[in-house]
Design a protein around this nucleic acid. Structure first.
Length: 411
RNA sequence: CGGGGUAUGGUGCAACGGUAGCACGAACGGUUUGGGACCGUUUGAUCUCGGUUCGAAUCCGAGUACCCCGACCA
């Protein structure tokens, strides 16, 4: 991608009412744009990051037998009335339709996936099943806050599992928890993301959240000082010892919830009469589980966790480009950079080339730091004198000169 | 939803009740070129409605929007 053609505009002025670092950086670097409170556009740069996160999640969901599908966002009122959530779920957006009809905008999809599953599940032979989708969710939060960390419209991955019995379900649930840990690790926040025992809300006594440590987070969690488990503040009072290792010492941390998994039991199978015929010929309710990750929130959490005073520092796995090729003025430089750009591209490397000639080096470097692309490759008259280019990792201070012909060995 | 704050060019900020100004950006010309360089010219704004006043960006009222704290958060 040529930077002069990129749909974005970097801004060196700090955001006026910036409350969270991720909001300020993502807006200023042109990754996202705020349309209104809690609603954001993802610009080309931000969308690339989102797609990369999506790819990591999809891969890991498929590894635990998830089949991807796409459910509607517009739901019939009746399904929500049936589970009682038309009235009880405060964040549900409700829309008028033609005539007397009313619709819900999907804030979660149990009300859609359970009746859908009923159409394919009849026998124990049909189970287990696992489906997931990556889709926009709507929640009428009373207060949107912290940029893309808490919005009214956001991208979420939700997986639903269907099982015949508790034992098999529990095995899968743990498998899903492991997959989650893997996802957060691959997104570069594994070390600061904790599986956290939390309330199950109206679904179950407990659930498991995945909480990423950051001051921008709105949750308080207690991280076990001995193992890697944490406990959410909401249930800390009743759980004085770590459920994993029996330790009683915890460290209090602010965190943002990037994922949450629930054992739904028959909570939704019952209202939708989702059952199967078991080996013994008797009908039994299907056991359900649901597993969510907020992709857009995850993107914000990554920035909260990985930045410095100059800008974003993307983990390579989610970065919009792998290489930021920066060419300084000079006709020879431009020719050499163009050649480099082509060879990087044909090697399958995602590269953004800052070929703008009306920008001073300082400005180019500053903007490169703001954008946070993992590897910066500078071409200038100085480097070309040595038939070289300069390599610098965004996350490190060290610069090194590498021969132009050897560039592919280093990216 | 309760409480608080803010609202001025595209962005960030100024302006005692009396000529709306600065920086960044953008455009044009020129000089520069390894950390947001410089010179000149130009562009472009007081959230909406009402009130007070000779006169309102400024004071008052209502509305709207955004932000922050809290509550809420399958």
């Amino acid at each position: 991608m040529l930077q002069s053609k990129l749909f974005y505009k970097a801004n060196k002025n700090k955001t006026g009412n910036a409350e969270s670092v991720s909001h300020d950086l993502l807006v200023r670097a042109g990754y996202v744009d705020q349309l209104m409170a809690g609603v954001y556009s993802f610009l080309p740069l931000g969308f690339k990051v989102l797609k990369n996160i999506e790819g990591i999640i999809r891969k890991n969901m498929e590894m635990i037998d998830g089949q991807e599908l796409l459910l509607p966002s517009l739901h019939p009122k009746e399904n929500w009335v049936r589970t009682g959530r038309w009235d009880s779920l405060d964040v549900l957006f409700k829309l008028p339709g033609a005539g007397d009809k009313e619709y819900a905008l999907g804030s979660t999809h149990e009300e859609v996936v359970a009746p859908l599953a009923k159409k394919v599940i009849f026998s124990y032979k049909d189970l287990p099943l696992h489906v997931f989708q990556i889709q926009t969710k709507f929640r009428n939060e009373l207060r949107a806050k912290s940029g893309i960390l808490r919005t009214r419209e956001f991208i979420m991955k939700d997986l639903y599992s269907f099982y015949t019995n508790q034992e098999d379900f529990d095995v899968y649930y743990e498998k899903a928890a492991k997959a989650y840990e893997k996802i957060f690790k691959e997104c570069g926040i594994g070390k600061i993301t904790y599986r956290t025992l939390a309330s199950g809300g109206t679904f179950s006594k407990y659930s498991d959240e995945f909480q990423t440590i950051t001051d921008a987070g709105e949750d308080l969690i207690y991280v076990c000082t001995r193992c890697s488990l944490a406990i959410n503040k909401e249930i800390k009072a009743e759980t004085l010892k770590c459920t994993a290792c029996n330790n009683a010492e915890f460290e209090e941390k602010k965190a943002v919830e990037v994922g949450n998994i629930f054992k739904l039991g028959t909570k939704f199978s019952t209202p939708f009469d989702l059952k199967f015929t078991d080996r013994d010929g008797h009908d039994k309710p299907v056991l359900m589980g649901c597993y969510g990750i907020g992709l857009s929130r995850l993107m914000g959490a990554i920035v909260e966790a990985s930045h410095d005073e100059k800008g974003i520092i993307w983990p390579e796995s989610v970065a919009p480009f792998k290489v930021h090729l920066v060419s300084l003025p000079g006709a020879k430089v431009k020719t050499a950079a163009a050649k480099l750009y082509k060879s990087l591209q044909s090697a399958g490397i995602q590269v953004l080339w800052d070929e703008r000639e009306n920008k001073n080096p300082g400005e180019k470097f500053a903007e490169s730091d703001l954008l946070g692309i993992p590897l910066r490759v500078v071409v200038s008259e100085k480097t070309l004198e040595k038939n070289s280019v300069e390599l610098k990792e965004r996350a490190k201070d060290l610069m090194k000169l590498v021969k132009v012909k050897d560039i592919l060995k280093h990216v």
